[in-house]
């Protein structure tokens, strides 16, 4: 796949979502994309065939702190809906900020059948705030070599910023996308 080399290149160009845009995606429990709506294809620049079956992590932007994914993943495993402010990388190295709302899709037996993600436009002020916040958390994480240590110090930094990583972070994300 060309995603490996693509992740290294960034253009610094931001793509901005429209007010009525919702990026919708579905993943299997292993995180591979099973559905991508046309907004997703338009914003990310990928074709449907490139995304289906590909890990969602293909959209990961290097400016995104590891600890943010870690804290959201913990709540998803508890079968809770989660919100996050996320910057994603388009295929060509552009980036776009979204308010991500992820819900676990549960089977009749209660097992997680996959995840459903809605991604919406963020207000400009929220993007600026998140960019600055994540840059600092990322700096703190970058001082650690091991992934686990990066997550640990990143979570400490987020806790310092939000007090608790549950409701106060959630409220922050809701304000970012009314």
């Amino acid at each position: 796949m060309d995603t490996g080399t693509a992740s290294l290149s960034l253009t610094g160009v931001e793509r901005v979502l429209g007010e009525g845009d919702i990026i919708v995606s579905k993943t299997c429990p292993k995180g591979r994309i099973t559905y991508a709506n046309d907004t997703f294809l338009n914003v990310s620049g990928y074709r449907e065939a490139e995304l289906l079956g590909t890990p969602h992590a293909v959209l990961r932007h290097p400016e995104m702190p590891r600890s943010v994914f870690a804290m959201r993943w913990q709540r998803l495993e508890q079968r809770q809906e989660v919100y996050a402010v996320v910057v994603n990388r388009a295929k060509n190295g552009d980036h776009y900020w979204v308010h991500a709302h992820v819900t676990p899709s549960l089977g009749a037996d209660g097992a997680i059948r996959g995840h459903h993600s809605f991604r919406r436009k963020l207000d400009r002020s929220a993007i600026d705030e998140a960019a600055e916040l994540y840059r600092r958390v990322r700096q703190i994480e970058a001082r650690q070599r091991a992934k686990a240590d990066q997550v640990r110090v990143g979570l400490e930094a987020l806790r310092a910023a939000f007090g608790d990583l549950g409701s106060s972070y959630d409220r922050w994300t809701w304000k970012a996308a009314p």
Binding site: E19, G20, D21, I22, H99, H101, F118, R120, K121, S167, D170, R171, W174, A177, P178
Partner: peptide, 13 residues
């Protein structure tokens, strides 16, 4: 009891 959760209407027509 988590009343702070508001519906996110953005993008829904």
């Amino acid at each position: 009891g988590e009343y702070a959760r508001r519906p996110i209407c953005r993008g829904i027509p």
